[in-house]
């Protein structure tokens, strides 16, 4: 049992929910990270500036975390570099094709009782679980 980790996880989750809810209430926008990153890298008209600012906020938060909570930023990449590259490609392509990632579907979509997001989230968690089983069979961590 790891109650401290889970309690902090719930508090972290509330912070994520608060950030997404504040963005929704103040601007009407959805805090879906893959969609936000998509708007930035494609230089989306009208939406570019706030999306870039959000990504910079995430990055600044990461830099802050390295100093404030270094033990939570100590994780290593679990796979070899070519496999990490492949995983990144799949995550980028898949989240855009499916219209959202863990934040867009998993938090904001489910948080709006959107059936599409509930089904999407169940799908990527189920496929993720199967992938973990296969990765172990092949000999990964």
């Amino acid at each position: 049992m790891d109650w401290q980790t889970w309690g902090l996880a719930a508090v972290g989750g509330l912070m994520i929910g608060a950030a997404a809810a504040a963005l929704l209430a103040l601007t009407g926008k959805t805090a879906g990270i893959s969609g936000i990153l998509d708007g930035v890298v494609r230089g989306e008209k009208f939406e570019f500036t706030w999306k870039l600012a959000f990504v910079l906020g995430l990055t600044a938060g990461g830099i802050g975390l390295v100093f404030v909570l270094p033990e939570n930023m100590a994780g290593q990449g679990l796979r070899s570099l070519p496999v990490m590259a492949l995983a990144g490609l799949l995550v980028g392509f898949g989240t855009r094709m499916g219209g959202g990632c863990t934040s867009g579907h998993g938090v904001c979509g489910i948080g709006r009782l959107n059936v599409r997001s509930i089904v999407g989230t169940i799908t990527f968690i189920a496929v993720g679980a199967i992938t973990v089983v296969f990765a172990r069979m092949i000999g990964g961590a």
Partner: peptide, 17 residues
């Protein structure tokens, strides 16, 4: 607003490991 929400989002992710 976008920057501050991104910042809070990142801290939530970090605290939650």
């Amino acid at each position: 607003i976008g920057f501050l929400c991104g910042l809070l989002f990142a801290f939530g992710l970090g605290l939650a490991q």
